[in-house]
Nucleic acid binder design. Structure first.
Lengths: 182, 182, 182, 182
DNA sequence: CATGAATGAGTCTTCATTCAT
DNA sequence: TATGAATGAAGACTCATTCAT
């Protein structure tokens, strides 16, 4: 059965998204992606030249926007923090599936450092904010993680279509931050 | 020869711990566990019938304590929350390596649900607390994640030997909780 | 549309020649032949039913001339030898590319035996010449190889456009042959 | 069926030798080596860590001796030529199969340059000799090829156990060299 | 008790060839 | 007549698991 290239491409992307989200890059299997897209492996490789290329096709748009987010950061710590948190919410809304894929399992990929980087940027910004308020900066480490994983958990649950929960959660994490740290 | 056997078992456990923590369940290799325990694969399989069984032997003690923790929970939400958070700190201190193994890479294992369970218990308790204070309970979902991953991040960094940072972080997360939620 | 077909066929031949010379039969790729002939694989297969068939189309003319060379050989050993050596030079000049393709990479092809055959004819002729002069005939075996590979090496280097080096080399190989053998 | 490691290793080597000699490195198949050694691929990889490693196990000893041959060359052209030709004969006698494997198909291997090098050394030496006798040095190129392929042909034929034919052939190639070149 | 050789199914990837359109 | 999507078998290599010794 002969089908349109674009339709097939969509089938691949769809099944790859599932597989990568479920197993991460390394344990995802091209075979199983192909077969759940009703296709032979050989044909899969007509569309994407290798596993990383296919992964990139899924993660790509998010990747670009993360980079542009990082390149436009304000200097001042507090506005940088707001800028980042708003940016995260935006990215998560527009690239739900990609975000989860990236943060779920990009180990073994050139994209891994993007995820790590984002983490690092948030952490450093938090540190700067804390320092400015004469508070222990070390707590920035777990707090950055907490924020990212908290947001991811919301994302996973699929229920927060409005984005209200994410707003509330971020508010919860940030409100009166200076007074909650030793 | 019971003595000898026990010594061998310890060697296996020790090297398996390292391997599982480093690579997670799926990417850990029985061959490399055996060889770094100065032992052949065949012999490894005399002690543990397969990879998951070995994984269980490592996660096991933590698993038991998690279960006992769960079976002694106080009824009242607020004391249950404190009970849990204290319990977590205790478990992380006593089973650092196992904890990281469990939460870092139990995908593909029957133990994954243990991690998920713990998550669920914390979430439900948070929900109960929030309900009692007439606050939106949904936020419990990301907050539970945030707590667990924040603690894990501290654990990973190896720097918090005293446990102070964990205390500060939990304080940060819990202080005035009722007033930070819509 | 016979004209068009012929033009296409030429494009195929041209790009196949390059590919086969470069990689030999086994490592040559139909895909790459098609694409460097600005054409799809499917269409390639309309002109040549498989890889070996295409290979034959290239080797073909040389193949025919080799056969005609072989069928017109003089009886008398010494003139046969001259006839062959002259023929080789002629063939190499007129079918440089095909010759290198045939002797460079026909392994896995039914044409390999053509190359072997030519070798055999030269060897047998040399043997007859040696016998006639009461010399050890066995040396014909390495000498036939030496001649053919020596000529191929000249051909490969692309520098001998005049053919002088080939002449000198053959002279070197043949001069006073009877006195150089035990 | 459980067998001694050494016996198995021999079976592998034997079947790899055949395969590599027949198809060269690139087209030789690990699968077919394994199966003609009555073995699974997995087991083959217990003995040799990859295809090149296995190839090296076959070619290795010859490789070493070639290197030692090259490092002890006399300065003076004519004695260097004799040294090389004697060396070749020696190596061919002691490493018949390896020699044919190396010169038959080492493309794609780190060993290829060894073969090419040897060729180059012989060619350069011939050139020096010719220059010293005021003869056209270009002919060294085909003559070096002729010598090597001639010797290989003798080797392939398996008939020259005494080495007499190789001696006669080299004599044939070298005798009165200065007077046979323009 | 312990060894480590062997298996078999899995991994990603390539390629000649076919066939619906 | 031509397209290029699809197939299937093969390539090198890995690894959990079993079993003869």
């Amino acid at each position: 059965m002969q089908v349109l290239k674009e339709e097939v491409r969509q089938r691949i992307i769809k099944s790859a998204r599932r597989e990568f989200k479920k197993h991460g890059f390394e344990k995802a299997s091209m075979r199983s992606i192909a077969s759940s897209a009703n296709m032979t492996v050989g044909n899969l490789y007509r569309y994407y030249k290798n596993k990383e290329d296919l992964y990139g096709a899924i993660i790509g748009s998010l990747f670009d926007e993360i980079n542009s987010l990082k390149s436009n950061m304000p200097e001042e710590p507090e506005s940088r923090l707001n800028y980042l948190l708003d940016g995260f919410k935006e990215l998560q809304k527009d690239h739900r599936s990609e975000w989860l894929t990236l943060f779920g399992g990009s180990t073994g990929t050139k994209f891994q450092k993007v995820a790590d980087d984002l983490h690092g940027v948030l952490r450093d910004t938090l540190m700067d904010v804390l320092k400015k308020n004469d508070r222990r900066p070390e707590i920035a480490v777990p707090v950055a993680s907490a924020i990212i994983y908290g947001l991811n958990t919301i994302l996973k649950s699929e229920k927060d279509k409005s984005g209200d929960l994410a707003d509330d959660f971020l508010n919860y994490m940030m409100v009166d931050i200076a007074n909650r740290v030793a």
